[in-house]
């Protein structure tokens, strides 16, 4: 597969390490009332879509960016590649 890195352009997928579902960006608040339940859900519950899937890839043999890649799990078509840091900020994460 070829991943179109937002900073470096098209790169071969062998340069990357795959992590999984991009919902790992949505880490719960440790002080919430039901923090334990939320963390269990965060750690273990996954959708398994036949279709578009947002997932985390790490450019380990490159610039060490974490990316959010939107990939169709049926066709492997990649429709969007974003820096995970930007996605995290958009999602309200800061320090």
């Amino acid at each position: 597969m070829i991943i179109n890195h937002p900073l470096l352009g098209p790169r071969d997928s062998s340069e990357f390490v795959y992590l999984g579902d991009a919902r790992l960006l949505n880490r719960p608040d440790w002080q919430a009332d039901n923090a334990l339940e939320q963390f269990i859900d965060y750690g273990h519950t996954r959708e398994n879509p036949a279709g578009l899937h947002r997932e985390l890839w790490y450019h380990e043999q490159g610039d060490r960016s974490w990316l959010v890649v939107t990939r169709n799990t049926v066709t492997h078509e990649i429709t969007q590649v974003e820096l995970a840091r930007d996605v995290a900020r958009t999602g309200g994460r800061s320090k």
């Binding site: 880490r27 974490w66 995290a88």
Partner: peptide
């Protein structure tokens, strides 16, 4: 991962 994704 922690640096970029959790505390950008």
């Amino acid at each position: 991962f922690v640096r970029q994704c959790l505390c950008p």
